[in-house]
Design a protein around this nucleic acid. Structure first.
Length: 431
RNA sequence: UCCGGCGUAGCUCAAUUGGCAGAGCGGGUGGCUGUUAACCACUAGGUUGUAGGUUCGAGUCCUACCGCCGGAGCCA
């Protein structure tokens, strides 16, 4: 009897009587008619409750129903330009499922701290809803991209015995009496997996215990990390730019409504098409020097440097061959200049900074041992990793993309903390 | 870790030179047949982050501490 439907599908039910199950987003009243804005997770629809159309008890209850109460509304789907969304429901039945207590997030301005303290409820508001839908779509597009190209998903462990890169601070945890650490990258495991499957990727959470207090950092974030056997730096950059182009174009196609809700300037995203500019570290350093920026040759780029470089282009820019000294131990040196590493950072436009870091790995057993010693890393922890160079070593490369930074860029958000459902930062582990 | 900023009602913010702690929203009561963050009237709501100090008098000035926000470094 009941024609249950989701608000997203409401246009298919024009002039039909349907039931929508959801929550009260907002309510306006005009004495003899109530306007209930009902959301169901797929959209928002205005339900019009006229005094003549329902019994008196229902009408009175609608009048004082608090925000975010759960309810089922049944009525005629009516096209009306006065309604937000173009369609409204002329209600003849209201079933109240639960009367909410006073809802803390009112339809007025709130500060970020307050909203983050109520993150579990903030997810219900339309902007956060849009962001997390785009996040979902980005993850789906990323996985589709690698799946279609014949990559195998190989999950990396979260508990690790030692640092992957040795530099960053790790979260330490007690592992049955011995120390274990939360992973900061699945890459080393992907290198081993690439020798088994050829093309692999992992997608999971990563952890950094650095006390970073900026809009670009979380202590827990998600990274997608492809790794390819028989691949060099150029091949790696080819995949990286194709990957980013694919994701951005998919989001432009499939998430128009969300991008509109987020007031994203999509003309900037439309320009994200291959080929991306590729410049060397030396070329980038010269750009900074010519611009008169305070930059010391040989150092890694700081946040203002990255912003300047990316501002010179209308699409992501790939900066390759950084000084080996500022990069991790597993990077392969450039045969043409051993002071440089065969690595690449992809800088997003509009000042969003580094969204991808990667490169070609050192595949020579002796040179890798030397690097581990140079970086003062515990050799025994890398024995298994050295096996990858002992048994059929091949040139290989890969990269990692931070999902949250990609979401922030594509959504045009100024802060990364809204790109993940429940952010973990240096000062927040609740809710 | 360093630098800067901010802590006033449930929320967002005012409060002049140190002189009666206020508004909007939200809550409550009543009104309104097309509202668009509806509107109108009335109403309740305060240990001004904490501790100390100066002063006749401190939200305001001083000292310390706590918390949060932003930036740097580090990185995705």
């Amino acid at each position: 009897m009941k024609n249950e439907t989701y608000i997203a599908d409401i246009s298919q039910h024009k002039d039909q009587v349907v039931t929508v199950s959801g929550w009260l987003y907002n309510r306006r009243s005009s004495g003899k008619v109530h306007f209930l804005l009902v959301r169901d997770g797929t959209g928002i629809i205005q339900a019009v409750v006229g005094k003549k159309d329902v019994d008196e008890e229902t009408f009175e209850k609608c009048k004082e129903l608090p925000q975010e109460s759960s309810l089922k509304v049944t009525g005629l789907v009516h096209e009306d330009h006065r309604a937000p969304g173009g369609f409204e429901l002329h209600v003849n039945k209201v079933e109240i499922v639960h009367i909410a207590q006073d809802y803390p997030i009112t339809p007025k301005e709130h500060g970020t701290t307050f909203l983050m303290d109520h993150r579990h409820l903030w997810l219900r508001s339309s902007k956060q809803h849009a962001i997390l839908r785009v996040r979902h779509a980005i993850i789906r597009a990323a996985r589709d991209f690698f799946d279609k190209k014949g990559f195998t998903l190989v999950d990396a462990p979260i508990f690790t015995p030692a640092a992957c890169e040795g530099t960053s601070t790790l979260f330490e945890t007690d592992y049955f009496g011995s120390k274990a650490y939360l992973t900061q990258s699945g890459q080393l495991y992907m290198e081993a997996a690439a020798m088994a499957f050829g093309k692999v990727y992992c997608f999971g959470p990563t952890f950094r215990a650095e006390k970073s207090k900026t809009r670009r950092h979380l202590t827990e974030f998600w990274m997608i990390e492809p790794e390819m056997a028989y691949c060099d730096l150029d091949g790696n950059m080819d995949i990286a730019e194709e990957f980013i182009e694919y994701i951005v174009q998919r989001i432009l196609e499939e998430n128009k409504e969300e991008l509109k809700r987020l007031e994203r300037d999509t003309s900037k995203l439309e320009k994200v098409q291959r080929p991306f500019p590729r410049i060397s570290y030396d070329e980038a350093a010269k750009m900074l020097k010519d611009a008169g920026l305070d930059f010391v040759y040989g150092d890694d780029f700081g946040a203002p440097d990255e912003t300047y470089i990316s501002d010179q282009f209308d699409r992501p820019v790939m900066v390759h061959r950084y000084p080996a000294e500022v990069k991790a131990f597993y990077m392969k040196p450039d045969p043409a200049d051993s002071t440089k590493a065969l690595c690449v950072d992809v800088l997003a436009p509009e000042g969003y900074g580094e969204i991808i870091g990667g490169g070609q790995r050192e595949d020579d057993y002796d040179k890798l041992i030397e690097k581990i010693k140079e970086h003062d890393l515990p050799m025994e922890a890398f024995e298994w990793y050295l096996d990858v160079r002992r048994y059929g070593s091949v040139p290989h490369a890969g990269f990692g993309m931070g999902i949250e930074r990609a979401v922030a860029w594509i959504c045009g958000l100024k802060h990364i903390r809204e790109t993940i459902p429940f952010p973990r930062t240096i000062s927040r582990i609740q809710p």
